[in-house]
Design a protein around this nucleic acid. Structure first.
Length: 720
RNA sequence: GCGCGGUUAGCUCAGUUGGUAGAGCGUCUCGUUGACGUCGAGAAGGUCAUAGGUUCGAACCCUAUACCGCGCACCA
């Protein structure tokens, strides 16, 4: 027996050595899997790693991703699939730019004072530097992904694919450049899609203002300078005397104005006085009304949140400062009827910085989503995509049924540039992949390059087919549609649903057959981890202390898909003990079988041992079912239980007597059983605890890596 | 307002098609010098949120209710 077994299992000494051995073997790359084990025609299995944000280091959520995906992938490899796990890194557009901006701030710099190209270069440097770090951390988690196929979202061939989709959307009439109201963050100076907005409930004063003969109400008096349309429901009897289009002179904030009556059915007669004035430039509903009635739209607030000249004496003032002053003035003029101090309402904020979103009218690129959503809905309803857990299917369907057009323009430098020209004269936008458009196709005016970049989700939404080399690589033919997409339930709309739509649109096929969604990783008390709370758990601290295997199985056991997971150090510590238990079990089996050689064809088992074999194989069959159905939490627990409380506590204890006192036949039967069972245990546990199992496997003197062994139910089992 | 979850042992959570409630951690008792103290044997601890219903039988299916969480939403 190897003298290593005389000491407790030492993950630190083992893990990097084992990982290196795997990597050198080349078996992470399915093309290199040995033909005798993975014969020609072996079924492919593919899982694309969600491209990791390259803007920081691995957090607990990544730890869970790498664990679950590696479990899936190792299991499939053991089952004889030609298994590809394709790793990738994400430039993560806005997310990364925000991280980098914080760094700039610390250095007393600002992105707004920098040359765009210079900023881009700096962020690229930053990202590439970080990505080295990230990749080594992914390796530490034991991820058996094919590094030779690694992709980055800014790789030229990825960008080419993304551009191709952009062009095709334009040709198919699904892309338009619209002067539309968008959600604008005054701090980050970019627009967003509807998903980057966070609703927040606030209690604020609510003002009732006299507007000529009417009373209107608002929580945002600072937007009201330009309000010259007063809107009411056509059926509202209270205002039957007022006709559509009628003009009324009245005294307003900065003096007399002429207002126009507009009748529109979108007004809720029950709400307030049933009368409202509109600010089409800064409010989505108002924008809609103005569009329907062809009304003037005037900008009141600039991109930074400051009032424009229309605000008269308040021009140049930031809206937050201006609001109380405006109210003061209105009160002096006797235009304030009353103020409700406890008005509870919902405001839109930037999901990243919490700044109040200021709707603005902007020229942006939009994708018409309804047709894309319709196709996705059909496939989902057919059951062609399986959701785990199931209820995400309903959530997705609900979202797809109510989908809005997608604004894919971002006013940030860190991203894929939008390949388009914009007319200086008429604002017309033209897709231009090869820099061929020199003048406006509408008015012959001069053109300039669109300065915006794509929403990062527009490119990552194409990841499954883009990363597999759609249009130019055999990988696409072999592995697409991919088998499983494993990611966070949080990004079901952002990413998963868009991948389905864009995948279907571009390739005609769904991008994956199964979506497995995990929940949030929280701290031991079930609170969200955040730097400000100081409760962030670094997965690498835990793997360092307890070993990666302990971390992995501890992350999985008791964690059902879709529900959040409370990560506690105690739990991980407990599974460190388990790793050591396996180690000691192996030592026991080896010391008690030194005189014999394992015979996988052995048949002369005692009746007692046959019963043990039945028990063991039943559990393995059970575990196999659980693995096939993505119930890793339960498979791991069953194995844990069998290994510790059946195999170790009962069988090994009993074997002490059998081996020291038993007849030679009885003894041999037991020894063969122990060796056979140890092997099967190691194989079954390997997806969960790859390092310790591989290390023991090697110490058993096996010629082949455990990583590419055969799963016990696929043959090669004792007494089959 | 609409939608989706959750409510099971002190804590964190399992419970696959309905068949006398489970795990880990924690607590308590006892044991153990050769596989392992990173141990073993055992114990305490739950009217499975509430109320109805279906059923021979419900933590599980149905209907309400309460509370908690999350998502979506253009009430000025």
């Amino acid at each position: 027996m190897n003298e290593k077994f005389l000491k407790p299992y030492n993950p630190k000494e083992t893990e990097s050595r084992i990982y290196e051995m795997w990597e050198k073997s080349g078996f992470f790359n399915p093309d290199n899997l040995p033909a005798e084990r993975f014969p020609l025609g072996a079924k492919p299995f593919c899982l694309i790693m969600p491209p990791t944000n390259a803007n920081g280091s691995l957090h607990a959520g990544h730890g869970l991703v790498m664990t679950i995906e590696d479990i899936i992938v190792r299991y499939k490899r053991l089952r004889g699939y030609k298994t590809l796990w394709l790793p990738g890194l994400d430039h993560a557009g806005f997310e990364t730019q925000v991280v980098y901006e914080k760094q700039l701030e610390k250095e007393g710099r600002s992105r707004f004072e920098m040359e765009p190209n210079k900023l881009y270069e700096e962020i690229l440097d930053f990202t590439l530097n970080n990505s080295k770090n990230i990749k080594s951390q992914i390796r530490k988690m034991g991820a058996s992904c094919d590094w030779s196929r690694e992709k980055f979202t800014l790789d030229p061939e990825i960008i080419k694919t993304v551009y191709g989709t952009f062009e095709q959307l334009s040709k198919d009439g699904l892309l338009y450049r619209g002067n539309r109201i968008v959600s604008w963050c005054p701090r980050h100076q970019t627009s967003f899609s509807d998903l980057e907005i966070k609703d927040e409930e606030r209690v604020e004063p609510y003002y009732f203002l006299k507007y000529g003969p009417f009373t209107i109400s608002t929580s945002r008096p600072e937007t009201k300078f330009g309000d010259k349309y007063v809107v009411m429901h056509p059926n509202d009897k209270r205002y039957a005397n007022y006709k559509d289009g009628q003009k009324i002179d009245l005294e307003w904030i900065n003096g007399p104005i002429t207002a126009t009556i507009v009748k529109d059915e979108s007004v809720d007669m029950e709400f307030g006085t049933g009368v409202m004035t509109i600010t089409p430039w800064h409010d989505a509903i108002d924008f809609g009304i103005a569009e329907r009635h062809n009304l003037d739209k005037e900008q009141i607030i600039d991109d930074r949140g400051k009032l424009l000249p229309v605000a008269g004496e308040f021009a140049g003032m930031h809206i937050t400062k201006a609001r109380p002053l405006i109210i003061q003035k209105l009160e002096q003029k006797g235009l304030v009827e009353k103020i409700d101090q406890n008005y509870k309402h919902v405001v839109h904020t930037c999901y990243k910085c919490g700044t109040l979103i200021e709707p603005q009218i902007k020229e942006q690129w939009f994708i018409k989503m309804k047709p894309l959503a319709q196709k996705a809905l059909e496939k989902i309803a057919n059951g062609e995509i399986v959701y785990i857990p199931d209820h995400y299917k309903k959530i997705t369907e609900h979202w797809l049924e109510n989908i809005m057009d997608w604004n894919i323009s971002r006013q940030i430098v860190w991203g894929i540039p939008i390949p388009a020209k914009i007319c200086d004269q008429c604002g017309h936008g033209m897709v231009d992949l090869n820099d061929e458009v020199k003048k406006c196709q509408k008015c012959d005016g001069p053109v300039h390059k669109d300065k915006d970049t794509f929403d990062t989700w527009f490119s990552s939404g194409q990841w499954p087919f883009a990363s597999l080399g759609y249009g130019y690589s055999d990988d696409f033919k072999t592995y697409y549609p991919t088998d499983v997409m494993e990611t966070a339930g949080e990004i079901i709309f952002f990413w998963v649903s868009r991948m389905i739509m864009l995948g279907l649109y571009r390739t005609g096929k769904i991008p994956f057959k199964t979506v497995y969604l995990h929940g949030l990783v929280q701290d031991a008390k079930g609170r969200k981890m955040s730097k400000s709370k100081g409760n962030v758990i670094n997965p690498l601290d835990l793997t360092e202390k307890y070993g990666t295997d302990a971390f992995r199985i501890g992350m999985v056991i008791g964690n059902t898909p879709g529900t959040s997971l409370a990560l506690s150090e105690d739990k991980i510590r407990a599974y460190k003990n388990f790793a050591n238990k396996i180690w000691n079990i192996s030592r026991f089996v080896l010391t008690n079988t030194e005189a014999i050689a394992y015979d996988d064809k052995f048949e002369k088992f005692t009746e007692n041992d046959l019963a043990l074999i039945k028990e063991r194989d039943d559990i393995i069959i059970d575990v196999t079912k659980d693995m096939d159905n993505f119930r890793f939490y339960i498979a791991a627990e069953k194995l844990y239980h069998y290994v510790w409380h059946t195999f170790a506590d009962k069988i090994l204890e009993e074997s002490k007597n059998v081996i020291s006192l038993g007849q030679s036949e009885e003894k041999l039967s037991r020894q063969q059983f122990l060796l056979g069972t140890l092997e099967k245990i190691l194989i079954c546990l390997h997806p969960f605890m790859p390092f310790v199992t591989e290390e023991i496997w090697q110490l058993l003197g096996k010629s082949q890596l455990l990583m590419i062994e055969k799963w016990p139910t696929d043959g090669n089992t004792q007494n089959e």
